[in-house]
Structure formats: structure tokens, C-alpha cells
Nucleic acid binder design. Structure first.
Lengths: 376, 376
DNA sequence: TTGAAAGCGCTAACAC
DNA sequence: GTGTTAGCGCTTTCAA
């Protein structure tokens, strides 16, 4: 069994305080180790990388020198001399969002499993900031750069991604798009999506099975691929099942709890309660809707059913537990890294594409309707 | 005005698709740029770093060559040749926790402002994982390594941190402890704390002002510095104000919503409702307590008051808005980076120490008690 | 199995 | 102002 250098040093250096560490200032280098072990630098290098045969006795001498000096290889020198950089990067809109940080968590887990360092950065959905970050990552020769989250899929997006893909490819990095669409065929890019369309379909189908026919789709950013896909699933189900569909049953425009609350509040104020179920864009919007209904004295799920999307923590903490669609966030992140790092031929710029499935999680917030709510 | 290289390249390379990028494979190097601009590598280097005078005409030639070739400096070569690494790292227990990711967010913001890349990693409070990560960061010559979150402050902790401080110092990195105590005097370490003791005091004082005397402290990990400090503030206030205090009014043992819920549920089942207010270790525990009381038909704040700590998102989303203590999470993260990067003398291993203040945020969940709740 | 030597891409004296 | 030269710490041929 070969063991990577940092694994070796991590496990060999115990947590006890037993150092003969170098004094503050100049760091310990490979030549210090070579000197102490009485071998050449090449031999130390061979022991550290573990990719060459070294006599057992020699190896042991080197290993103790490493331990005694607290030596770690300089990652920059190593990267410069041709090795890869051991760095995986993930760019999210906002690390404090639950959606983003679950995916980042998966990326980080897999990066760690593959003995890579992981950098997580927020772009605030600002293309200039995104580009600035990618420049830095290009400088670092990151192994993989994972971009997370829905986008508006237009020509500008496709061209920007195509350009990034080539730029990163030239620097030896792999671009991974996670939860966003492929920018086109034949690019050196890895795409990991999850099934928004299918989830949207499943929710409507579930509500239909409970007897609902007029279902309000609430929330989402117009044009955003995530919102569009969930809505597309909603619409396909409506068509297949013969449910009414129309502009009055679709309200896009926001993704916040507040948006959900205020829209429902407004509808109630206008007396436009001509639906029996709310299909929230995500759990956050659904939670807002839930609160608005509760505050108006309308019982969920007795009078109105509500469903969400994401299966976030919040779905199991609302007063009425939320029926939702589970997204395999962590698995998305892990898959992104796994695919990017293990391409059949790391040189050939082949495209990779997977679409992870989602599934319905039935809780309390959607039930059959024994009677229509009293609206007036 | 001098502009750093990555700022320069970020702003100069537009978002349009106008590349004559190198083909997949060998990356563009400084000598390619030098060749194209008809100057020496040194001159290109001077333009890139901006720390030497270069004739305007020459600079312009170099800049266009850079743009045309999509050149970015290799960070490893640069770091190796003596520059710092432009990398700031933050290690948290769990990036999906709201507490951790708010602080990480601050670290990231400040790192970006200082033109540094930021890596965020989770340790799951595992010392071995922490050490393994620090080894990797040592390899990377990170400018700063920020450790976040409460710990058990014992001899083992102090020795471990002292060792890390020296190890990182020797590699030219700065260790920053954020929200955890100093491991001792004279170490090359930066400590950024926030006032847990004061916050604990303020909450009890606030409840006292509302007429509460028997206040239950609920939640927290025994031995953890964060829990100990909040409890210490609670106790100091009790002493100063002459309130009852005793083992039956302190229940440590968990930090989850579930813990808060189940303990209150159990107390109710046993009929031990001999307090008028619950001082939650944090908002999560308080939210659990709130839910348990609500489910038992006890009104908050009419019958019982509840307060939390952290001023997390959840505090303003519970059915009864939570009175809490605001922690300046983002500011903590920013301060950590700012201090670490701007030491008076980056060579001298002086200790730095600040303690950011917290403040009370009064919402609805604590009110005066007109009457005792009916327990039987 | 080991050592010597070249070079990765860049910066920083040092000359001119 | 600009070019030349010598490394930074490591890996990796190529010999021995």
C-alpha cells in the first residue's frame, strides 16, 4: 500500500507536544531532511511521494528525520515541479444559504476523501466576482472548479461558460457545473444536475392523488433554470392529468420566505383564494406561505395543502411538517468532485453529464380535501 | 495607484468572448508574454507586481500581450519565489451550521477584500482531522489559519494550540483563534473572542427587569468554553441580583433543537415547572423549548418567557419572535483576518487579543409575568 | 537502489 | 528603465 505524503505526515505526527521544530523564520526544506538522514534530496522525495522503490532501512531513516524536523513538503514547489495542486474549489452564490452550503459540504467531503484541499467562495451571483475568483483559481492550478446553482440559461451564459471551460482547461483545471445546465456540446466540462422537472411533476401528481385540482405555483426567479424546470414539471403534470393551468395559477418573482408570506397575504386580502393547494418553489417560500395561512386562521392541511422543494431542515421544523422533494445536495457535491477528478482521459476535453434523481418526501402539509375552505 | 495583478487581470479581461487562449495543454507562462511584448521576463514581472517603475509605453505593450494571451501568473511559482501565498484558511466544526458559516462568511469577505483566496474546511471537531488539514495548509504556506468555535479549555487544548502556533509560525502562517480562548501568553497567535459572559449577564438582567426570578439555564456542552462563559454570566447576574441559583435551575447536555424540546417536555411531564423563564444556551435550544411549550398548550410569553443566544435567522422566524443576544459573527470573521494580516511586525511572534462586544435584541418571547402559570 | 543535474515559472538583487 | 543572473523547493530524467 502506498500512502500519500500528507496522509503519512498527518498520521505519523502525533498530537502530543514532542517537537524539535525549526525556529520561527526559515521553514524546514527537503535538503534539511536529506542532510539529517544522510541521503540525497532525490531519495527523500521518493520516500515522500512513495512512487519509487526505496530500501527499507533508508526509508526508515528518512521517515524519522521527517518526523523529528516536522517536515512538510512545500506545496508550491511541488506543484511547480509538475505535480497537481491538490486543490478543489467550489463557487456558490452565498455560503450562508442552506442550499449552497449543503452542496459545498459534499464537495468538501469528497475533496478531503481524495486528499485535496477545498476552497469555498461566494460570488453573490456577480459574474465579475466569479471571474475574479476564477482568475485566482487559475493561478492556483486548481484541480477542479465547481460552480453551483441555477442561472438564466441564455447565449451570454453559454458563451461565458464555454470561455471559462477553455480557460480552465488550458490551466489544467476542470470546470464543473452543479445544478445548472450544460453550456453546449463538446466542451471540456462536467455537468452534474438534479431532476427539477421530475420533482415538480411528482409534487403535482401527489396533490392530484389527494384530490387537488387548482394548484398555485408560488415563487422562483423568472428565467432561472431551476424555477423554469420545476414549473415545467408542474405544467407537464397538469397537462397529463388534465388540470387547469393558467397565468393566475403561477406567481413567480421571489425566493424568500417573505415573498411567500406576502403573496399569500395579498391573495387573501383580495379574496382570491381560488386554489386548494400551494406548490412552493422551495421550502423557504412554502414556509412563508404556511405562516401567512396560519396567521389568517386558515388550517393547513385541512383547508389548504402546501408543498415545498429541497427537503431542507426547515421542512421538518415548521409547525406543520412540510411535504417536499428531497434534493441529494451532499451527493451532488461529492459527484461533482468525483467525476472531475476521475475522468477516463484527463487530457481529452470530453464532456461529462449526469442527472441525479430526486424523490418525494411525504409529511403532513398536504392532505386530501374533504371540503372547500370558506373563502368569504 | 498601483493595482494588484489579479485585480488587474480581473478588470482588464472583459466578460466577452474574445480569446486567443492557448490550446489545451501547456499553460501560458511569463516568457510567452515577454516574447510577445518584446521585453525581458523581469519587465513582465515588474508590470504584473506593479512594485517597480516601468516606462508607460513598455507597460502598455506588456499589458496587451497579457490580455491577448490570457496570461495569469502561476501562484505556485510566485509563492516559491518568495511572495506570500495569498491564501487564508478557516476551519470550522461544520460548515452547514449557521453559526459557523456566518463567521466563515466574514472571513471570506475580508480575505477577498485583501485580495486573498479563502479556503473553508470542516473538522467535525475532530483533532486528527484538524491536524491533517493544518498539515495541508502548512504545505500551502497559508497567510492565516482561522480556527472557529468553542472548545474544552484544558491543558491538552493549550498544548495543542501552542504547538500549532509554532508550527504555523515556522511556515510563515498566522494562527487565529476565533470564539475560543487564548492558549496562553506570548504565543504567536491572534485571538478574537466575543463576549459570552456579558451576554449571559444581560439576558438574566433583562429577565429580572421583567420580574422573573426563577430562570432555567437550558443547554450547552459541559466544559465547552462557550457554554461555561454564558453560564458564568448567568450566575454572576443571579448573584448580583440576589436571584435563586442551583443545580435544578441549570440543565446542560445538548445544543440541539431536539434537546431543548425533550428536556422541557420531560420537565412538564414530571410537573417540575418551577421556573418562569428559560434561558436557552442558544437560539436553537430556545426554539426547541418554545415548540415544547407551545405543544403543551403553555403560552409564551404570557405564561413563560424564553430567551436565546446568537440572534440567528431562526430567532426572527419562530412563531414567537425570540429575544436573543446578537453575536457579530461576520465582524468576528473579518476581524480575525484583518488582525492576522496586518500585524505591526509580521516577524515578531507577538500575541494579539480582542474581545468583541455582544448586545441584547429584545423581541417578543420575554415579557413580564402578571401571574404564575397553572402547573397542575 | 541511489545520486547528480536539469528545470518547473517566477521574483529579486545586481549591473548597465 | 531594463536586462542578466541566481535561486525559491521540489520532482524527475539519466547515470552509476
Amino acid at each position: 500500500m502506498t500512502v500519500s505524503p500528507s496522509q503519512a505526515s498527518a498520521s505519523s505526527s502525533s498530537l502530543e507536544v514532542t517537537d524539535q521544530t525549526a525556529v520561527s523564520g526559515r521553514a524546514v526544506t527537503i535538503s534539511d531532511v536529506a542532510l539529517r538522514a544522510g541521503v540525497s534530496e532525490s531519495t527523500v522525495s521518493r520516500v515522500m511521494t512513495g512512487n519509487h522503490r526505496v530500501a527499507d532501512a533508508t526509508r526508515l531513516r528518512v521517515e524519522s528525520a521527517v518526523r523529528e524536523l516536522n517536515y512538510v513538503a512545500n506545496a508550491h514547489a511541488r506543484a511547480l515541479a509538475g505535480q497537481r495542486s491538490k486543490l478543489v474549489a467550489v463557487l456558490v452564490d452565498d455560503i450562508t444559504s442552506a442550499f449552497d452550503n449543503r452542496i459545498a459540504f459534499g464537495v468538501e467531503q469528497q475533496a478531503m476523501a481524495e486528499d485535496r484541499l477545498c476552497t469555498i467562495s461566494s460570488t453573490y451571483a456577480d459574474p465579475y466576482r466569479e471571474l475574479a475568483l476564477i482568475e485566482m483559481l487559475r493561478e492556483q492550478n486548481a484541480d477542479a472548479v465547481v460552480l453551483v446553482g441555477g442561472v438564466v440559461d441564455d447565449a451570454v451564459y453559454r458563451e461565458r461558460m464555454a470561455r471559462l471551460a477553455h480557460l480552465l482547461d488550458a490551466a489544467g483545471s476542470r470546470l464543473v457545473l452543479c445544478g445548472r445546465p450544460s453550456p453546449g456540446e463538446g466542451l471540456p466540462v462536467t455537468v452534474v444536475e438534479y431532476d427539477n422537472e421530475g420533482g415538480g411533476f411528482a409534487l403535482v401528481n401527489h396533490l392530484y392523488g389527494l384530490g387537488h385540482e387548482r394548484i398555485l405555483f408560488l415563487g422562483g426567479t423568472p428565467g432561472d433554470t431551476t424555477a423554469e424546470a420545476r414549473l415545467a414539471g408542474h405544467r407537464r403534470a397538469s397537462t397529463v392529468l388534465g388540470l387547469p393551468d393558467g397565468p393566475d395559477l403561477v406567481m413567480l418573482g421571489g425566493v424568500s420566505r417573505r415573498f411567500g408570506y406576502e403573496r399569500i397575504e395579498a391573495l387573501l386580502a383580495e379574496g382570491r383564494l381560488d386554489f386548494t393547494a400551494v406548490h412552493g418553489f422551495d421550502d423557504t417560500v412554502a414556509a412563508g406561505a404556511l405562516a401567512a395561512l396560519r396567521d389568517a386562521g386558515i388550517s393547513v392541511p385541512r383547508d389548504i395543502s402546501v408543498v415545498g422543494y429541497d427537503d431542507r431542515q426547515i421542512a421538518s421544523e415548521t409547525s406543520t411538517l412540510l411535504t417536499s422533494v428531497h434534493i441529494p445536495h451532499v451527493e451532488l457535491g461529492r459527484t461533482a468532485v468525483r467525476l472531475a477528478l476521475h475522468r477516463a482521459d484527463p487530457i481529452a476535453p470530453a464532456e461529462q453529464h449526469v442527472n441525479l434523481s430526486t424523490h418525494l418526501v411525504v409529511r403532513e402539509s398536504a392532505q386530501s380535501i374533504p371540503h372547500r375552505p370558506t373563502t368569504g
